[in-house]
Amino acid sequence: MADKIKFSLALVLLAAGVAGFYLLSEQAMILRVLAVLAGVAVAAAVAWKTAQGQRFFAFANESVVEARKVVWPTRKETMQTTAMVFAFVVVMALFLYLTDKSLEWVLYDLVLGWKKS
């Protein structure tokens, strides 16, 4: 029950930060943005104290650890892969264009006898 209250409080604080953005419409934009950021920060701090918040932040930390284990491709590998994808797209576009024009010729000129003028 306490977690539900904390989570509800976090949502209210988040809404208060967004409401502050609109209530401070006469003020400088930096103050309005800071109101939103403060609301988000305080809401995150309150949500962190819930069981769901603890599980979420543990999951986020595990995700960061797993992302560090990934072997990312080098710039050269990325450029080569991009070039291969681009070449495949060009070849497929050409193939589909030729297929379309061939079917158009067969259907309209040979089968139906409709000559284009």
Rank of each mutant, 00 (worst) to 15 (best):
S102T: 10
K116H: 04
G20P: 02
F56L: 10
A28E: 13
A67S: 07
M92H: 02
F88H: 15
E26K: 15
A83P: 15
A45R: 15
L107W: 08
F7A: 08
A44V: 09
K6Q: 11
V70R: 00
Y22G: 11
V70A: 04
V46Q: 02
T74E: 00
A41R: 03
F56W: 03
T81G: 12
K69Y: 06
F56D: 01
V85L: 15
K116Q: 03
K4V: 15
W48S: 10
A87R: 12
V18W: 01
N61V: 06
Y97G: 00
A87V: 07
V70C: 00
L98Q: 07
W105E: 00
V106R: 02
V18T: 03
Q54N: 14
I5S: 08
L98M: 02
T78Q: 05
D3P: 14
A16G: 05
A51K: 13
A35G: 03
L23D: 11
I5L: 14
G17L: 06
V85C: 14
F7H: 12
T99D: 13
M84S: 09
R32V: 05
V70I: 12
L107V: 13
T74I: 00
D100S: 15
D109P: 05
R68M: 07
E77V: 04
V12K: 14
A44Q: 08
V46T: 02
L94R: 11
V85E: 15
V64R: 06
T82V: 08
L9N: 12
A16M: 04
A58P: 00
F57H: 02
T50N: 02
V18K: 02
A41V: 10
F21T: 02
R55T: 13
A83N: 15
D100N: 15
Y108M: 09
A58T: 03
K116F: 01
L31Y: 09
G20Y: 02
G17I: 08
V90A: 05
A60K: 14
T81H: 12
Y97D: 00
A2C: 10
P73L: 01
W72S: 05
N61D: 08
T81W: 07
Y22P: 08
Q54H: 14
Q27P: 01
L14E: 13
A38W: 03
K76M: 03
F86C: 05
G113N: 00
